[in-house]
Design a binder for these strands. Structure first.
Lengths: 357, 357
DNA sequence: GCCAGGAATGTAAACGTTTACAGGTTCGGC
DNA sequence: GCCGAACCTGTAAACGTTTACATTCCTGGC
């Protein structure tokens, strides 16, 4: 369809080597007038070097694989965008791979990407089993983990200090007067879960509160899991005045269910999430949550990968960003007393639209 | 790094042609015992054919380009997931490209994807200028448009009947007693905008209501645009009791702003959106909206592309799905009387329970 | 046992690049 | 005017496949 280097060479009356030289304008010497002739021919024929052929020869495809659990999970698109933005600026293509947390799929993609000769990988998915990651490391495949990064696999990573974020969130609730704080987490096979729960417990410990195992739930990081946790909480008539959910999706699911059961937020129950997905600030009440700089993490991860690709220092480096507690409306303000009576007055102030109920 | 076909050939004591034959197990005759020997060697050496080399030779890369405005716009991930799901099942890779509605970027990606020899394209982005699409058509590049599809470009498309969806939504508001219905749309360079506004006007016309140009806004399909429209509406003291926004993001932005200004939804103002993004059902009040089968559209688009790739019938086909109005809480229920003067009263009446009305 | 003919296999030329190497030019210094 | 050096350009061999064509191997009918 499009012209090949050979045709350009013929059109310009030079050899293919010369054309190649001007195209890759390396510091190779090619006389200005020849160069001009070649450039003219290239323009005339609309020549564009075939990246597949080049990839085969140079063993570099200018493509990276992006492996995530699920692009339709609202946490990932912003990361993906950051990645794609810096990749495209660097002329790299991004191959999208959804694993749905399925280790088999993850491995299959890995094999596929290998046969496709991608230059590097970005992983935003990592379960308990990290054997394949270690293998990558051994084979020296340039890779960067983003958002989820089990310790000790020896692969570069860009992520947030989950423990710290969870601790801040929990401490904030404690500062507001809460002592019975439920935790909705995920399966403990995920590093993020473990870290966030650790932060939660740390904050409790600092306040001299011993964690109540009956207030701990596995919500699977899905909205429905948050709702289920609330159902259990209410059905078992547990005493709790606040919920810290290990991600926003679960927090939102919990809020839905609380509302459905006639509990008001934050009056009856304060809720704090983690991630700060777009909708955290659009729902009502606006969700207090631990913000992860998702877009930035994506950019940084890709930049790190570019660094690796350009042959930079190979020693794995973990880039740990600071999460930021964004206080909005779902956590309420300081309780005077334990109960709900006080909160009502405050509501009127903050939410004129809902008042009078 | 990994074994090549030549090494396998040597290990199995056959020629590369034979190895190739068993790998592509075409109906080419290869004696069972040779095949076994080759298979054994392949297993032993963990041979995997290099897709780049194969792509160069066969002129087929088993890769498609996915061109969308912005993956972090919540409307697209579900579509992308559908596309990726069926692509991966067919062994195709998906190259993610965000254009940010920038025609220049779109063209640049097109050129890039061409040099990468992708087998086909899926477009979920199309502005006013369709010259490049016509060009694709001329060059016979397999391509499918999804969600946004200007008429007359002669390219396959999978989308929803926007006019019908908008008409249903508006008609529903009218049925509920509203007559002063604001419309928040987008730039009229987008086919979706034009179609949805047409549906809105059609419903008004059917009810004998003449559209009020002062109630028409361009919200740019962004949440902030919805908020801005509401600000204008209120500042200009327009008479309106309902808003139909051409997408959920704008509807949500509008709701935010309404609430901020002390208006209650649906008591003071009814709101209906378009798209049914995930969060439409998670916000409070749950958003009434015109649902697009996003995931399904993604699947269908990719399936259509596979059809084109396998050399199927090339005559362009538009697959128009039926949108479905999902009635939730943001549109309220039938008004007893009409007009704004009454609105307040109505509010009071309905007020006591959001539930229970 | 020979031979035709089909089946199985091998050889080598692509696909479109890059790049080591070699060959050819130009030029300044003598 | 000659020589070497620096510079420019061309030739051809890769990269790892696939595949047309050629070759070899069987098989069975005579």
């Amino acid at each position: 369809m499009t012209a090949t280097i050979r045709e350009v060479a013929r059109a310009a009356g030079v050899s293919v080597a010369t054309v190649s030289r001007v195209v890759n304008n390396a510091s190779n010497h090619v006389r200005p007038d020849t160069r001009d002739r070649v450039l003219a021919a290239i323009g005339r024929l609309r020549y564009e070097p075939n990246l597949v052929a080049r990839g085969l020869k140079k063993r570099v495809t200018r493509t990276v694989g992006l492996i995530i659990p699920d692009i339709s999970n609202p946490f990932y698109p912003a990361i993906a965008r950051g990645i794609e933005d810096v990749a495209s600026r660097a002329g790299l293509g991004v191959l999208l791979c959804n694993t749905y947390e399925d280790l088999g799929k993850e491995r299959a993609y890995l094999a596929l990407l290998n046969t496709r000769m991608v230059d590097g990988l970005i992983f935003a998915t990592v379960g308990a089993n990290t054997a394949h990651l270690r293998m990558l490391r051994r084979r020296g495949v340039p890779a960067v983990l983003v958002a989820r990064a089990p310790a000790g696999v020896g692969i570069d990573a860009v992520l947030v200090d989950n423990r710290l974020g969870a601790r801040d969130a929990t401490a904030h609730l404690i500062r507001l007067g809460h002592r019975d704080i439920a935790f909705i987490g995920g399966p403990d096979s995920l590093a993020v879960e473990v870290e966030r729960e650790a932060g939660y417990r740390e904050a409790l410990a600092e306040a001299g509160i011993s964690p109540n195992p009956r207030l701990r739930f596995d919500g699977g990081f899905r909205a429905e899991g948050g709702a289920a946790a609330v159902r259990a909480l209410l059905e078992r008539r547990e005493r709790f005045s606040a919920i810290f959910a290990a991600n926003d999706l679960m927090a939102i699911g919990a809020m839905e269910e609380l509302r459905h059961r006639g509990r008001r937020i934050p009056h009856d129950v304060a809720v704090v999430g983690f991630d700060d997905i777009t909708f955290a600030s659009l729902i009502e009440p606006r969700l207090t949550t631990v913000a992860q700089p998702k877009y930035r993490m994506g950019c940084l991860a890709m930049e790190r990968l570019l660094h690796l690709l350009s042959g930079g220092d190979r020693r794995p480096r973990r880039l740990v960003l600071e999460p930021k507690l964004v206080v909005r409306d779902s956590c309420g303000v300081r309780l005077r007393r334990r109960a709900t009576s006080v909160t009502r007055a405050r509501t009127r102030v903050h939410h004129p639209g809902r008042e009078g109920t």
